[in-house]
């Protein structure tokens, strides 16, 4: 008993607890980022210049925001293949409504619209007991089609200059505002996962859905909320992306969905759910962002960049396997 009290006293100190849980596999990604950055910096010192890092932060912001939501679906044991399509649609809807609600109203519309679409998707998955894979794939088609119809198939360039100035290219305290929004989303995600009942249930559902159901958790409700939150992060991503690009495209960045899944898994979130956190999302996005940024700087053709990203993702999934080899 004595021992146990001492043990809990020690565990109560957060940094000790954190340190105790750190193990080798947790250090792979930050280690990789450090080593990779050092190598690139040796070849091309501009990589670590403030200007480039500022640029990099802006580049990864939309992906980071989306990956926060994607991480929730993956931790809960599902995934969302409709994110990029819903992002484009909420961008189009928001910008089309600017004349009605004004620029700041428009960004609220985008976030709320994403949330609503996510809740609908979540409702179908959770209450109609369907597979997230198929439902979100269908939802991707539906959202793309509606976006194309609303925008008549062409990008809408009437993005209010306030948004471009404030969010797309604005800086606050020396950092890009878009990146700060992404960090705020990460913090929100971390808070939800670690400190709320919702977060606890997200892990539980991903770890063993049947057990969670049987221990008296309203699994359907929380599954719906997971996709609702993913939709919300899609909406926020559309704010960031639209302001940055200066246009609402009906098909904007279609491969961002898969990149968000790749970022989550690359960072260390288990593809079959139940573990991982926001820090892993950050790692994954930094690796993917740094990879294409640095290869451009070094002068590698974009064809080879795509190749490199693909290889990194495959290696990451194999790493995921190794990390979990005890489970098979």
């Amino acid at each position: 008993m004595e021992d146990r009290n001492a043990e809990t006293a020690r565990l109560r100190q957060p940094w000790r607890r954190r340190l105790k849980r750190l193990n080798f596999s947790e250090l792979i990604m930050p280690g990789f980022i450090l080593v990779y950055s050092s190598i690139i910096a040796l070849i091309e010192p501009r990589f670590l210049s403030w200007g480039n890092l500022d640029n990099l932060a802006g580049q990864i912001a939309p992906l980071l925001v989306m990956s926060v939501g994607q991480a929730f679906t993956i931790i809960s044991g599902g995934l969302d293949l409709s994110m990029a399509a819903v992002m484009s649609l909420s961008g189009v809807v928001g910008i089309l409504l600017v004349p009605l609600v004004g620029p700041w109203g428009a960004i609220c519309v985008m976030a709320v619209f994403g949330l609503l679409v996510g809740l609908v998707t979540g409702y179908i998955i959770a209450y109609q007991k369907t597979s997230p894979f198929i439902v979100t794939l269908g939802m991707a088609s539906v959202a793309t089609a509606i976006a194309l119809i609303l925008a008549h198939g062409v990008p809408i360039y009437t993005v209010p200059p306030e948004l471009t100035a404030a969010i797309g290219f604005g800086h606050f305290l020396g950092l890009p505002v878009s990146f700060e929004i992404a960090i705020a989303m990460l913090l929100l995600g971390a808070f939800l996962l670690r400190r709320t009942v919702f977060g606890r249930y997200v892990y539980a559902i991903g770890s063993n859905k049947s057990a969670t159901l049987r221990s008296g958790v309203n699994v359907s409700l929380y599954t719906m909320l997971v996709y609702g939150f993913a939709g919300f992060s899609t909406g926020v991503a559309s704010i960031v992306l639209t302001s940055w690009v200066g246009a609402a495209q009906p098909v904007a960045e279609p491969d961002m969905t898969l990149k968000s899944i790749a970022a989550a898994v690359l960072g260390g979130i288990a593809l079959n759910g139940g573990s991982g956190g926001m820090v892993h999302v950050l790692y994954g996005c930094i690796v993917l962002g740094a990879l294409s940024n640095s290869l451009t700087l070094v002068g590698v053709s974009s064809f080879y960049q795509i190749l490199a990203v693909g290889i990194v993702i495959i290696v990451a999934v194999m790493l995921d396997r190794v990390r979990r080899r005890e489970i098979f």
Binding site: R200, Y203, N208, A211, G274
Partner: peptide, 13 residues
């Protein structure tokens, strides 16, 4: 294993 334990979570959770 199938219906009770959350294998990837701690005893506390």
């Amino acid at each position: 294993a199938a219906n009770c334990v959350l294998p990837s979570r701690s005893t506390r959770e």
